[in-house]
Every structure is written in structure tokens, then in C-alpha cells.
Design a protein around this nucleic acid. Structure first.
Lengths: 170, 170
DNA sequence: AAAAATATGTCAATAGTACTGACGTATTTT
DNA sequence: AAAATACGTCAGTACTATTGACATATTTTT
């Protein structure tokens, strides 16, 4: 039988951590899924709604870069969101080739509706850990991102908007 | 304009945490994707390989519960994995209705190949955080899981196998 | 022994997401 | 004027997933 080396236990713990990421993500996305089906939308629509909401005036190219999908995949979803009145486009001022994307009022409402249960999940999860230390929870997730992309993510955070439509401070 | 209430900043940080989960998961699954395409498999195959590898002799019903997909979705993937010789079935000893699932030797090899880059990613991520405190990284992910399911996940961890085929302690 | 429950497999039909690769158009930069 | 950029769109394809119904073998309950 396999003899257990010194590193086996460590690796085992890492595999558990990997599975925790899988389970956490699985349940994390289950929240909005139900809401989306009411609207006839899927996860791709959700992601577009979210990042357009967080970055009003975002360009198509940037959205493609964030979502890591192809133009064609985004195209269909974006078209549907525009036709159904959740997203609208504006010509760029400085560069008229650009289509700047914004959420409509209904888009903002939907965005908030989608975020609510996920924010709730995170809030109680953080409470559940009982950790007071600042940043520990961000660290691992951040470090899991491709090294080349971490600057980009940080930059995104810097530019992120408080919402288009602030009904209340939740 | 929206006046920023006390809770706004906290919520903003939570939204960033949510996005970090999205980015982390996006990159985390990008590792095996490339490997899978060589074999003509997709993510569903990966998940089956993984959990069968971790729980040799797992039942179909349990796999369905872990993956949260339908019997039909699993059925197709499982059939392909069996036909191509990565997974095999055995009748349950005590209950002959059960089909207990195992990885073949090639299945184990593939499993290891798929895990390797993800283990690497986690190891350097943990190193990158510089945190020595035990468990902090698990806590948040664990708490993000549906409350009803946490016991189940813990139970799974308890039953998880060191691999079927221990070539080396990585 | 008969009835009920369980574990699994399978059918058909459909939807959502994603891919590749190429091409067209408008606009800006060089 | 030429080159590069931003975007949209085409056709064809693949993977993952869904629902709901039904068939089979086996075990448990009555």
C-alpha cells in the first residue's frame, strides 16, 4: 500500500480547499439562478448585468476581457438585454467607434435583486467565520487569480461605481 | 445624488469579495480546461473524474447530489467515461441495485493530471497570502456553502480517499 | 407472497452557453 | 492614404444542462 509521505497531508488539505471552492461557488451561483429564470435569462445575462452595473459606460472589449468569453457569446446575450430594455448603449464621446454600455432603471433594479441574496450569503459567511482580521478573506481569492490579471482586477475595483440608482443603503 | 450611508462601504467590500470569487473560480477552472480538450472531455467529465477519484465506490445517487445536476446530464458523461475506459462500475455487494463507480488506472492518471495545476495554483496562492494561521482560508469558503449542506461536505472530507493509485507523494 | 420503495438507466425534446473563423463597417491613428 | 482599432455579424458546431415520463432490477415493508 501507499506509504504516506510528509507532503501527503498538506496536499490533502489543499484538495479539500479546492473542493470547498467548488462547493462555495456552486451554492453562490444558485442564488441568482432562480431569479434569472423568472426573467428568462441565464448566467451569462447575469454576468453582463453585474459588470455593466458596476462599471457604467464599460466598453464591449473590456467586458469581453473580464468575462473571458467570445464576442459571439457576448453578442447574443447583450442583444437580448438591450431588446428587453435592461441595458442600453451610447456612442463614445471621444471615440465614436465605442459602444458604451449602461443599465437602464429596470437593469439596475434587476442588478440589485440579483446581488441581494449573494450579499446576504457573504455577510453571514463572514460573520460565521468570526474573523475580525481585515483582508484575510480577500487574500486567498485574490491570489488565486492569474498573476497577469491581478493588476487588472485591482484597477477594476478602483473604478467600480456605487450603483447607478441608489434606492437605499442596503 | 445618493448619500453614502454607514453600511455602503461594507457592502462595497462585500461586492468586491463576490467578484473575487468569480475571478478566482474563472481562473481556477481554466487550468484543467486545456487538458480536458486534449481528451475530448468537458468540465462535466472533470467533475465526475474528480469525485469518483476522491470517493472510490461512490454511488450514482451520491454523485448526483454532489454535482447538483440531473441524472440525464450525468448519464451521458458517465457513459462516455466508461466507454473510453476512465471509469468502471461494480455491482454493490450488499445492494445489487447500486452501481459503484471507480476510476481505472488511466482514470487515476487523468485525475492526477487535472489536479496538478490546481494544486499548484492553491499552493502558491496560500504562500502569496503569507498567512500562517491554520484554517482561515477554509473558513470563508466553508461558510459560503448552503447551511444544510455543510455537514454533508464535512462527511465527504472524512470519507475521502488518498488516491487509488499513489504513484508518488507529490 | 404481494406491495411499496429505492437505485439506476433511458427516452425525446429543448435551452443556454460557448466555440472557431471569417468578413464587413465605421472610426481613429499613423 | 494606409493601417489599426472597435464592434457587429455570419454559419456551423459542441457541451452542458434541463423536464418529465417510463422501464428494470432489487430491496424493504406489510
Amino acid at each position: 500500500m501507499a506509504k504516506e509521505g510528509k507532503t501527503s497531508k498538506e496536499t490533502g488539505e489543499i484538495v479539500e480547499l479546492m473542493e470547498l471552492l467548488f462547493f462555495a461557488y456552486r451554492d453562490f451561483i444558485s442564488d441568482p439562478d432562480e431569479i434569472l429564470s423568472k426573467y428568462g435569462f441565464g448566467r451569462a445575462h447575469h454576468r453582463v448585468i453585474h459588470f455593466v452595473g458596476r462599471h457604467p459606460g464599460i466598453r464591449v472589449a473590456e467586458l469581453l476581457d473580464i468575462l473571458r468569453i467570445t464576442k459571439q457569446s457576448l453578442g447574443r446575450v447583450l442583444k437580448e438585454l438591450i431588446e428587453t430594455g435592461y441595458v442600453f448603449q451610447q456612442e463614445g464621446e471621444t471615440d465614436r467607434r465605442r459602444r458604451l454600455l449602461y443599465l437602464t432603471d429596470s437593469g439596475c433594479d434587476l442588478h440589485r435583486e440579483l446581488m441581494a441574496p449573494q450579499i446576504e450569503r457573504f455577510k453571514s459567511a463572514i460573520k460565521g467565520t468570526g474573523t475580525k482580521i481585515n483582508g484575510v478573506h480577500r487574500d486567498l481569492l485574490f491570489q488565486l487569480i492569474d498573476k497577469d490579471d491581478r493588476d487588472h482586477v485591482n484597477k477594476l475595483f478602483g473604478q467600480a461605481a456605487t450603483h447607478c440608482k441608489q434606492k437605499q443603503d442596503i
